[in-house]
Structures are given as C-alpha cells and as structure tokens.
Design a binder for these strands. Structure first.
Lengths: 147, 147
DNA sequence: GAAGATTGAACGATCAATCTTG
DNA sequence: CAAGATTGATCGTTCAATCTTC
C-alpha cells in the first residue's frame, strides 16, 4: 500500500496521516538512492554487510533486516548480478552461505548512503530540535502501544 | 522495504523511527483486515467504489488511489475472482470500463472497514487528545517540507 | 495523435514446500 | 529431526509497450 490512503471509518485520521507521511518520505529516499544505482532494500543489505566487516551468513542477514530468508536469497541474487555482493561458502558450516560485499559494492554503498543522508537532511532541514524531540517521543509511544 | 531499517549516516534517526512506526501500524492493520478476508489494497478499492455510489471507471479509481492504471487492472482482476467487484462496459465511452462493487463486496467492505477502525482505536486507544493533535501537526509539517 | 485499459517484465515481500547438511 | 538455503507461488507495486477507441 504505497498509494494514497482511504479515510475509512470515523476518526482515526491520525494513523492515515502517519502512514502517508512515511510513504512520502520513503518515496523521496528511494528516488535519492536510485540516482546512485541502488534501492533502499539493496542499500539495507550493503549496510548490514559493511557494518559487519563485509561478510555475513544469509541467515544472519535476514535477522539483521528482520525479514524472511527467501527475501534475502533473492535480494542477494540481484546484488550478485549487479556485482555488488559475492556468495561464498561458509568454511565453518557447509549448510551456510556467506554474502560478501565487493569493492564496487562498497563504493556504491558509500555513495548511496551519502545521498540518503543528504535527502534526509533536506527533509528535516528546517525542523527545530525541539519539534524533532517531540516527534520522536510521540512515535515511540505509538510503537510501544502495539504489543 | 517493510523490514527493520538501517541506521545509515549520522543523525536522521527520526525518519527511521517514522518509517518504522508506520510499518508496524501498517502490518497491524493488514492483519486486522486479513482476518476479514481482505487486504488494505483491496479494501482501498472497495472503499473508493462504495464512496462513489458503487461504480467507477478504472481510470478514476487509479486517480482516487493515486496509483498507476495497471495496478488497478490487476487489483480488480483479483477482486473479480473474489467475487467482490464486477467489470461492466461504460455506456458513455467504449474505451472505458466500470468497476462495480457486488453485494458480497459491500458486506466484506463493511466488515473489514469495521475491523480496521477497531484496530486503529486499539492502537491509538490510550493516546490523549492533546498528543494526537501534536503528532498531527508535526506530521503535517514533515509532509509540507517535501515539495 | 491522445486517452483508457491491458500485458509482460521487474522489484520487493511473504508463505509453503523442498533439498542438503548438521 | 533442526537449521540453512532455495524454489515456486502469490500479492502489491511500477514501468514500458501495445491495442482499441475517441
């Protein structure tokens, strides 16, 4: 559901606004990293790898990104085609496969990461620190209200 | 990008929180309507139809949901299989196709819509009106900061 | 030619079933 | 039998190309 949101029912427009704002932000960031030849999903994988020394078993990668394994299988497939990640056998366990970031992968990661930062700074640019703090607190409250 | 979000770069954690909160809310609402045999995407279509007398040309539907036409084509395909929507020729323009909600579609729409309301009320349940108002204002500000 | 709809391809995500190795 | 990874199916979404009708 990436498109404009219906206004069902009688009053919870706030959650509609929340989802809409996040969607607009997401689209904006997606465009920013796309201009550097990545998607947010691929950037997420490269980030996890770069943050862990360059290599991770696919299962750990799935844990890192809180997604199911088959998602990682296919994401890494595409990243391999792009030449940004390599699959390697795990010496410690023959069931396991390591994903390793390539040199080109590191370069793309750095560039796209900077592009994302820049876009985020643009979006938040004018918002005073006090309001940011308020927003963070309110979002945290909603988060904890669920489970 | 529905999974846990990376913390690239140096400080815009706020947008990560925003996207994460929206994702959690989205998943929760999705589960709520799924229990009534719908998805948020399908519910959005039924809502648009119900709100406009039961029938709309596919193109207007795409406009309503701010998505691309081919998306509607396929969504309506699946809704037709479900028996919740019917395609009909547009008497006014032979290029155009009308999507019409069925009786069963209306029933499912009502039920799922109530389920969504309920879930939204649960999520927001304990949040005082003043905080809701604050949050709405801050979200609006972020929205306007983009274009 | 432009508008309405569809089709085919791709991406990102999930789930269920399967294969290999522990 | 568990755990790790893959495959095949389905959903939601976009884009580019195509077909029909205006």
């Amino acid at each position: 559901m990436n498109y404009s949101l219906p206004n069902h029912g009688d009053g919870q427009q706030l959650l509609t606004m929340l989802r809409h704002a996040a969607g607009v932000v997401e689209n904006r960031l997606e465009r920013a990293v796309e201009a550097r030849g990545l998607s947010l999903a691929k950037l997420g994988v490269l980030h996890a790898l770069a943050a862990r020394g360059g290599s991770l078993p696919l299962g750990r990668l799935a844990d890192s990104l809180s997604c199911v394994r088959s998602n990682i299988t296919q994401l890494v497939d595409r990243l391999e085609v792009d030449g940004l990640v390599r699959r390697e056998p795990d010496p410690a366990d023959r069931r396991s496969t390591l994903a390793t970031i390539t040199e080109e992968g590191r370069r793309r990661y750095e560039a796209a990461s900077r592009a994302q930062d820049e876009a985020e700074r643009e979006i938040l640019g004018t918002m005073p620190a006090e309001q940011r703090q308020q927003l963070a607190a309110l979002l945290h409250e909603i988060g904890t209200a669920i489970e």
